[in-house]
Design a protein around this nucleic acid. Structure first.
Lengths: 340, 340
DNA sequence: ATGAAAGCGCTAACAT
DNA sequence: ATGTTAGCGCTTTCAT
């Protein structure tokens, strides 16, 4: 017996009431006698009835579907566990709040043109969680123009954009300051491409920390990676000629890549070169030596983003909210803090 | 000017035709004068009109939304890059075929009870891709009973279930046979929990390979992990007492964990103990020594699953299809094949 | 070839 | 407190 014929109408009939009453019960509206409500609830329970989101959406309600846009070309999703972790945080909260999550990923820049209109006009989605956008990304302005409710994960300069971010500047600052305090002065950085706000902020934290402690900035100590281990491995090869005594890698995966390059060259870590990473994901704690890193609350960011989006959807007031969560420096072995 | 007020009706008006005609054009139905079709198309182009999927769905059509259910508790998604990779394969194909993907993950066993009914009755989804289910998982039987179109990723015993799988038995068999040919006879296995079909099949391939070559099976050489690196690391610690000369790890992440345990114990790989993994994901090629592994076409599996589901949806005939893709043994350093 | 009209399952006035 | 009714935007007979 397929349940597909279950509608408001049929529940109403079974409960001996009208369609509207059932609707009221389902939507928890007032004005239903407890006794009747009970009866209806019972029928719903028994039949396993679930309202049709499409019909509901069409009648002007929410579909309880949120969209997650990760505007990051394919390989970034593999680079490290960051996005999987974020997705976990998001889906867990979605589950708790009875929201379905739709996923929009694209793989090549070219897919943008095709996918973005689909996203923008997708009436099946009540609101959007957007992350991984680059500076020149056309999505955000379009969303604003469209009046589509959305929350960014990662900050955005437009003052009308609500976002959840992590304090990347402070995080990077604390990492680099820590290295300086430990007596390192030739501190390299392996950063992601600077077309992305998080990368920019971590870079800024690095620069600021050097300045604050009067450590001269040497631009030859700046190397670029793409958050993959291999890219940092290669960056480290280049850095090894530069007589450095520390490196700040802007993700744990990159820290692991740097570590591997150093170890293969028989350069001791942290003896000769100290390493600090960013994220505090498994690669950092698993490495040998374990990697000192900046912990960011990825899971919480995902959960908060969902809650915030739902708030916006609920209130319709769209009060701009800009949440910046703190990071925490997790000191392990790779920075040499515990070398006597 | 928000585009949200664009409907079939408004397009019809602009083009000077009726609603039905526009609908015919949009759906590429016959019976519209080329000239009129042209005119309508032009208006659609100009306005950027996109049909409302909810209304369409309600009127008895597909919503062009597919659901992906990963019935695997949270941590498995982090264990290794398998699922991210699979998701990539799936979304890429979805993008190409104009399908939106909805994601259903759950984190604790308890969420099942809440999430499954939502999945089963989710009328916003045209069909389901299901993976990560365990033997006793109630989802599959319910889907069948419900007559919900779905495709499994990973085989299923029910003869009415369409699935896409990889030849896990043959893959494991080739890995273990390779080790035997290289002269290894005390071959351990680190397997995932055997409540899952893929794990069972790899285990079976291991057993079969031993039998085929008359290598005695020693059940003390069977250890269990959960696909995380750390679980294999610990499993390997136990295995080290057992005088083994090779280990078959059922995922690359587990192979890396085993490798790390051996290296920390100063046991040479592949000198004293050879290692073969499964998947051929980055962890295998990145390790030092690089890990010999069984390559499975994850990306392709995802893409095929989408195509198959769409076929089912298109034809309504639901002809059962059971596709098993081949694996390939990728020989690198950790198995000792190139030790002279 | 095209238009008119019914109906998909739901919500939200509006009656009662 | 509950029922009645008019849409939401679309597809799909059925007329013309």
């Amino acid at each position: 017996m397929s349940t597909s014929r279950l509608t408001l109408e049929s529940i109403a009939e079974l409960a001996g009431v009208s369609r509207s009453t059932v609707s009221r019960v389902v939507n928890n509206h007032s004005g239903v006698r407890p006794e009747v409500r009970e009866r209806v609830l019972h029928v719903i329970e028994e039949t396993g009835y679930q309202p049709d989101p499409a019909a509901r959406r069409l009648a002007g309600q929410r579909a309880n579907v949120l969209g997650l846009v990760i505007a990051e070309p394919a390989q970034a999703l593999f680079a490290d566990p960051y996005f999987p972790r974020l997705i976990q945080g998001i889906t867990q909260k979605c589950n708790a709040l009875d929201q379905t999550l739709s996923l929009f990923l694209f793989h090549k820049k070219e897919e943008e043109a095709k996918l973005y209109p689909r996203i923008l006009h997708n009436k099946l989605v009540d609101g959007l969680l957007v992350t991984g956008t680059h500076d020149d990304d056309p999505l955000v302005p379009q969303l604003i123009e469209n009046n589509s409710p959305f929350v960014m994960i990662g900050r955005h300069d437009n003052p009308n954009v609500t976002f959840i971010d992590v304090d990347n500047v402070a995080g990077a600052h604390s990492a680099v300051t820590h290295l300086i305090r430990l007596g390192r002065h030739r501190i390299a950085i392996i950063t992601g491409h600077l077309n992305n706000r998080a990368a920019q902020d971590r870079y800024k934290g690095y620069i600021n920390a050097l300045q604050d402690r009067n450590v001269p900035f040497d631009e030859t100590l700046v190397e670029y990676g793409d958050y993959t281990e291999i890219s940092a491995y290669e960056a480290m090869q280049r850095l090894m000629q530069k007589n450095i005594d520390a490196v700040f890698a802007c993700s744990d995966s990159m820290a692991v890549g740097a570590l591997r390059a150093l170890q293969e060259a028989h350069i001791s870590v942290p003896g000769q070169v100290a390493i600090v990473g960013f994220d505090d994901l498994p690669p950092a704690s698993r490495a040998n030596p374990q990697i000192t890193t900046v912990r960011q609350p990825i899971f919480q960011v995902g959960a908060l983003a969902v809650e915030t989006l739902l708030d916006i959807l609920d209130t319709n007031l769209i009060p701009v909210r800009r949440l910046v969560l703190p990071t925490e420096l997790i000191i392990r072995q790779s920075c040499g803090a515990n070398i006597i």
